[in-house]
């Protein structure tokens, strides 16, 4: 019994999801963050964030085509996390670290929260 494991498969699939997002193909939700709009795929959002998982497993909310986040959420922090979801690359900058951390807490992305805390600690 042989299993041929394609080691790049997960990252190749994610790359294609990101291409679909950038070309707005089969994106099924708009996330509104302080008047800024982000198109995305519900399945990717809920696979990466416990908040989105809770929203989209709700039988009523799963049909929403637009979701408004708390007005306190920073659009730039959200953009960093959305990029991470589709690329596995978390771009942490000193100027955005607090916004990124607070948005990750809000989206319940626990591993990213831990990483932000470690990044802040390393800067002290």
């Amino acid at each position: 019994d042989n299993c041929i494991q394609f080691t790049r498969h997960a990252s190749d699939v994610l790359l294609n999801f990101n291409r679909l997002r950038s070309r707005n193909i089969l994106t099924d939700v708009t996330i509104l963050v302080n008047r800024q709009q982000f198109r995305a795929h519900k399945t990717v959002l809920m696979a990466c964030s416990r908040l989105f998982y809770t929203i989209f497993t709700d039988s009523v909310k799963c049909n929403l085509s637009a979701i408004s986040l708390d007005p306190k959420v920073d659009p730039e922090g959200f953009a960093v996390l959305l990029e991470f979801m589709y690329t596995s690359c978390l771009s942490l900058k000193d100027s955005l670290i607090v916004a990124t951390l607070n948005t990750a807490i809000y989206l319940q992305m626990d591993h990213v929260v831990d990483t932000c805390h470690r990044f802040i600690k390393s800067r002290d």
Partner: peptide, 21 residues
């Protein structure tokens, strides 16, 4: 998988969707 002989394929696994049509 236990008892399965796993062979690693390092190359691309699927087609690449282009950035733009």
């Amino acid at each position: 998988y236990e008892g399965v002989n796993t062979i690693k394929e390092m190359g691309r696994s699927i087609h690449e969707i282009p950035r733009q049509e």
